[in-house]
Amino acid sequence: MAETLTTAPAGLPAEEPPKTGGSRHRAKGWTAALPLMLFVGLAFGIPAIALLGGAFTSDGSLSTANLTESLQGAYLTALLGSVKLSALVAVAGAVLGTFLAQAVVTSRFRALREAVLTASGVLANFGGVPLAFAWIATLGNSGVLTSRLNLGDHGWSLYSFWGLALVYLYFSVPLMVLVVVPALDGLRPQWREAAQNNGASAWQFWRYVGIPVLTPSLLGGVVLLFGGAFAAYATAAAMVGTVVPLVTLQIADALTGNVLIGHENVALALSFDMIVVAGLVMAVYLPLQRRSARWLR
């Protein structure tokens, strides 16, 4: 406090003319934001330009040949496989996550709620290789449950489309819980009571008020889950190698020259496809979120 007081006289004259003070203030604002903008421009912009340039260059000239190739054959299968897997995980994760969130929100035990939310915070970030290994140890070919329950004899394989979906849900459901709990908390008890007071049954309350109010948050959650599953690479790479065709695995293969040398530009074209898909999905998300923020203030 003493320090603050001693610096006071020095600070005063500079502040005296309010106008110049204001403009200096604004100039400072720009300069403080400048390093971040420069950084993002360089660290993000240059690779983006390189990606675009590579995707649209074939044999040294401008062309859409890479893009065409990336939408054919095995590449197309992989892209569709990724979209299908992500869509499944997003919808199933959203439904299950909402179930779980509703069970927690309506519970009288605060400790349960805190525990589930904390665990969700950790598990939503628990992706990548460790997650794959945990599941391999559980339900893989020599996993604990597989061998104890002889699941192998029943045709079970973790290294499949459905196996991947099961594993992806492990981080998707907690993410959904984190997204939807605030929305469920935002459903005011007065709304339910007012609906009842107007003669509405439980079903009518949900149909006319509850679900419409939750829809933006639920769709927002679906979009986030889709994005997470769509971009996931480490888990899939550690689990299935190339058994399940996924676009991220194809890009990695093409980049590291595992399949054919000189296919780097196809990898860039595939990346471009991915960004377009993710961008389209995100474009749905932002306006939705704005609407739910307004309703659930």
Binding site: R188, Q190, E193, A194, Y208, V209, P212, V213, R294, W295
Partner: peptide, 13 residues
């Protein structure tokens, strides 16, 4: 018919 303290209007309608 009941009138609540506040914020009881359905926000989506």
């Amino acid at each position: 018919g009941m009138v609540f303290q506040s914020y009881s209007l359905f926000p989506n309608l």
